[in-house]
Computed example of a mutant assay.
Amino acid sequence: MTEGNFVDYVKIHVTSGNGGKGSAHLHREKYIAKGGPDGGDGGRGGHVIIRGQSNLWTLLHLKFKRHAKAGHGEHGGKSRSTGADGEDVYIDVPLGTVVRDTETNDIIFEIIEEGEEKIIAEGGKGGLGNWHFKTATNQTPRYAQPGLPLEEKHITLELKVLADVGLVGFPNAGKSTLLSVITSAKPKIADYEFTTLKPNLGIVKYRDFQTFVMADIPGIIEGAAEGKGLGYYFLRHIERNSVLLFLIPADADDIKKQYDILLDELRRYNPEMLDKERIIAISKCDLLDDELKEELKEELDNELPIPYVFISSVAQQGITELKDILWKILNN
């Protein structure tokens, strides 16, 4: 999937259907001049329903479809005939989609399971026909209920990528290169900051035909939690990941400081993200000779509070060890 085809934010106007009117019909037939009430009920208005689909990875199919309108319920007929229900409209979304009220920005619900269906705009209930109102003292009611009106809403759909492992790091830390090596994904790779503008997903093949999903998230900069850089546009994608893999290049001025800045941005965005399992991958280790690597290990053993591993995506060093550690954490 190309970068331009990854759509993770759309606004839609949804309208359900009106309920059909109940009928006030009176029974008329040859030789029966004054039959009783036999008006049927109106049909229910159509719902607008959000449905989860595991084969969708983006909201691209909704980019140019900004209105969803369900059918109206039909009116009741004679002989207690109930009107047909209005046609329901389904909006299929990828798993991990958050549905918000556009006006208040409140979360209405989230879709996280295959086939999960939730009504976003409920169709109006059909009105009752006049035969419901027949009593001993009012045997020919000439009135019936109108149907209930439709619901209308402006909603925002936000996709939060569902992945087992999320890559976290500063721009140009080598996240896309690692993803291209460890999975079959083909992200854009170049030697400048913010090469990645949208999340990329890749499936990591492990032993015995087992797999897990890794997401390359656009790079974090200081102040991202306040909206600097790409701000919320990528931080929300990290919320769904089970494990956070911090990628810090071996030639960084201060590895511990970079880790602390990244962690602080996540904490300021959502403190719950600190509850996730974390691991650090020191990338570009092919730049280090054995002596430098040993010195760095001694330093990091004292400074880093979580496990770390040396890797080189270009030289294919430490990749198997990284997979082993990630698999072990995911299956604890």
Rank of each mutant, 00 (worst) to 15 (best):
L201G: 06
L201V: 13
G202N: 05
G202D: 06
I203F: 04
I203H: 01
V204N: 02
V204T: 05
V204K: 03
V204H: 02
V204F: 05
V204L: 02
K205L: 11
K205D: 13
Y206S: 11
R207A: 12
R207P: 03
R207K: 13
D208K: 07
D208C: 04
F209R: 13
Q210A: 12
Q210E: 15
T211L: 01
T211H: 05
T211C: 09
T211E: 10
F212I: 05
F212K: 02
F212T: 03
V213L: 09
V213I: 14
V213C: 07
M214I: 05
M214W: 01
A215N: 07
A215H: 06
A215F: 08
A215R: 08
I217P: 02
I217N: 03
I217R: 07
P218N: 15
P218D: 15
P218S: 14
G219Y: 12
G219I: 07
I221R: 04
I221M: 10
I221P: 10
I221A: 06
I221C: 05
E222A: 07
E222V: 02
E222L: 00
E222I: 03
E222W: 01
G223M: 00
G223K: 00
G223C: 01
A224W: 04
A224H: 09
A224P: 11
A224N: 06
A225G: 01
E226P: 02
G227P: 04
G227Q: 04
K228P: 08
K228Q: 13
G229Q: 02
G229N: 02
G229E: 04
G229V: 00
G229R: 01
L230V: 03
G231Y: 00
G231E: 00
G231T: 00
G231H: 01
Y232K: 10
Y232A: 09
Y232G: 12
Y232H: 15
Y232C: 00
Y233S: 15
F234W: 01
F234M: 09
L235G: 13
L235R: 13
R236T: 07
H237C: 04
I238K: 11
E239V: 09
E239Q: 10
E239S: 11
E239K: 13
R240K: 12
N241Q: 07
S242H: 12
S242C: 05
S242Y: 10
S242T: 14
V243E: 07
V243F: 10
V243S: 09
L245K: 06
L245G: 08
F246N: 09
F246H: 13
I248M: 14
I248A: 11
P249L: 10
P249N: 10
P249Q: 11
A250F: 07
A250Q: 07
A250S: 15
A250R: 10
A250C: 15
D251L: 13
D251A: 14
D251S: 14
D251E: 12
D251H: 07
A252E: 15
A252N: 11
A252C: 15
A252G: 13
A252T: 15
